[in-house]
């Protein structure tokens, strides 16, 4: 018998602190598997502030822990001084799309040759379920307890759509992890996002629609269903930008 599925080498043996059923774990595994495939000599990751704040304990490479929202700037600093390293930033929706909006937009606009893994679960998980920049209209959060009201809170931000309007990025795709088929599609997207960096093609970002069973107040199974039935309607999956196709 041969092993057909095992833990990626790019993950440490430390159990994660994520809640049961949280798909941050899947995003870690997919990212780690993509890096495993590269056989890179140098890899440096940047962890965010938010639920993934301890990502530096889980990825089995050199890591830097950035201030809230600043991961793309930190990754830029690293990549520019060690251009032959694979540099990735791992960020949540509050980190990337709220406090760190300037950093992600400008890293994308510069076409910075880094890979960004953007985990969008439409809520602030670590701080206890507050409204996120990606919280959907009508979705409940502890700071919009009757549901997000456009009159009060405005509209959620569609990051992949927005960044794809810039000239800088090479590759932007939104994926989801609600079943095995979509996990495999997500893996392909993340693989490509890292391969683009190896080939020096510039900024790639994969937005992963993820669950937050704890703060959504749902079971892990129901959370997956919510991603499929609700989130994917608001945030359609797909490739939003791919300059590698334009070149071909």
């Amino acid at each position: 018998m041969a092993i057909v599925f095992e833990k990626p080498k790019m993950l440490t043996d430390k159990p994660t602190h994520y809640c049961p059923g949280c798909t941050h774990g899947l995003a870690h595994i997919l990212t780690a598997k993509a890096i495993d495939k590269l056989n890179a000599k140098k890899v440096i990751g940047v962890a965010p502030v938010g639920c993934a704040v301890f990502a530096y304990e889980y990825f089995n490479c050199d890591m830097q822990e950035a201030a809230h929202g600043r991961a793309p700037a930190v990754a830029t600093g690293i990549k520019r001084v060690i251009p032959d390293a694979i540099v990735f930033a791992y960020q949540g929706d509050g980190d990337l799309a709220s406090i760190g909006m300037a950093e992600i937009v400008h890293a994308a606009a510069r076409g910075e040759n880094i890979t960004v893994i953007f985990v969008n679960n439409a809520i602030y998980g670590m701080t206890g379920g507050q409204m996120a920049p990606t919280t959907m209209i009508g979705q409940k959060a502890t700071t919009c307890q009757s549901g997000r009201d456009v009159a009060l809170n405005g509209y959620p931000i569609h990051v992949s759509e927005m960044l794809s309007q810039l000239q800088g990025p090479c590759y932007i795709e939104r994926v989801a992890c609600y079943d095995v088929k979509h996990i495999k599609q997500a893996q392909k997207a993340i693989d490509k996002a890292f391969q683009n960096q190896v080939e020096g093609r510039g900024f790639s970002m994969i937005e992963i629609l993820a669950t937050c069973p704890t703060n959504w107040g749902m079971s892990p199974q129901d959370s997956l269903k919510y991603v499929e039935d609700v989130m994917c309607k608001v945030y359609p999956l797909g490739v939003y930008k791919d300059t590698t196709k334009e070149e071909a």
């Binding site: 599925f5 990626p8 994520y18 798909t23 774990g25 996990i183 495999k184």
Partner: peptide, 16 residues
């Protein structure tokens, strides 16, 4: 390996 693919915590190893 569907179970292992779906597990967020890398609990499952599959041999075939």
């Amino acid at each position: 390996a569907f179970c292992a693919t779906m597990c967020p915590d890398c609990v499952i190893e599959v041999e075939k």
